[in-house]
């Protein structure tokens, strides 16, 4: 199958290793991977801030680029939710309405694609460490992703998964919210970091780099040794 990989803007610029891992995993599984050069962002920042008119040109570009894709894989629950759940709403009543719905139906978040579409859970990965998993809220509640990442982590050799308390509580990133309301965002992040630290895990793994950017930012400012890692990087670890 030809997989069109949509690498979100912040993964592209800040966490390329997560994107590279996704490419390598998909190719190892025997799929052809293409990455449209022209799409950089799904349009979520303006969309979430209420600037839907400004979000549409960005989203329209994405729709054009993904028009012929057989399957679209997005390496972030948040951007996945944007395409799968919010594009149809953003384009409701617009000429692209139907295209948006079609593409939404062909789009998968990375872990869901592996587990539900490809039916793969064991990627032969080896990662001897204690990890705890952070569910990004968009993936968890908009897309209902809870089990796929755990199914995948469960097959990683040497990996011990320890669930944290209040695992489903938001980390406080929330896109522009983190910058518009830094005191609240930080307080929420502290709660999340403390829950993660309590597990005594060495890594916080997530399928959403944006949450991890916020969590890592807090942890390293506080000089905590806990590290963050995208799920794909763990799964790509031999």
């Amino acid at each position: 199958m030809t997989v069109t990989l949509f690498v979100p803007c912040f993964v592209d610029a800040l966490f390329p290793r997560a994107g590279i891992s996704m490419v390598q995993i998909l190719e190892r599984l025997g799929h052809r991977v293409v990455c449209p050069a022209e799409v950089a962002c799904c349009g979520q920042p303006p969309f979430n801030s209420g600037y839907w008119d400004e979000a549409r040109p960005i989203a329209r570009k994405v729709l054009q680029q993904l028009k012929d894709a057989e399957a679209v894989v997005i390496g972030s629950g948040s951007c996945g939710a944007m395409v799968k759940k919010f594009y149809p709403e953003l384009f409701a009543g617009q000429p692209e309405a139907e295209l948006a719905t079609q593409i939404a139906n062909r789009t998968w978040e990375f872990s869901e694609f592996l587990v539900r579409k490809l039916g793969v859970t064991d990627l032969g990965a080896h990662f001897p460490a204690k990890v705890t998993f952070h569910d990004g809220c968009h993936g968890l509640r908009e897309l209902g992703i809870k089990q796929s990442p755990r199914a995948l982590l469960g097959r990683v050799r040497g990996l011990e998964l320890i669930e944290m308390k209040e695992a489903e509580t938001c980390c406080g990133f929330g896109g522009t919210f983190a910058a518009k309301f830094p005191s609240i965002s930080t307080a929420m992040g502290e709660v999340k970091c403390n829950s993660a630290l309590e597990t005594e895990a060495e890594y916080i793994v997530s399928n959403d780099s944006s949450c991890l950017m916020h969590i890592q930012g807090l942890l390293s400012r506080q000089g905590k040794p806990l590290k963050t890692l995208h799920l794909a990087e763990v799964l790509n670890h031999a």
Binding site: V7, D12, A13, G19, C35, A40, T186, H214, Q216, R221
Partner: peptide, 14 residues
């Protein structure tokens, strides 16, 4: 103020 910023990658994914 409360968080470190991750460095931009020298080589981006693209």
């Amino acid at each position: 103020k409360t968080r470190d910023l991750p460095p931009l990658a020298r080589q981006s994914f693209k």
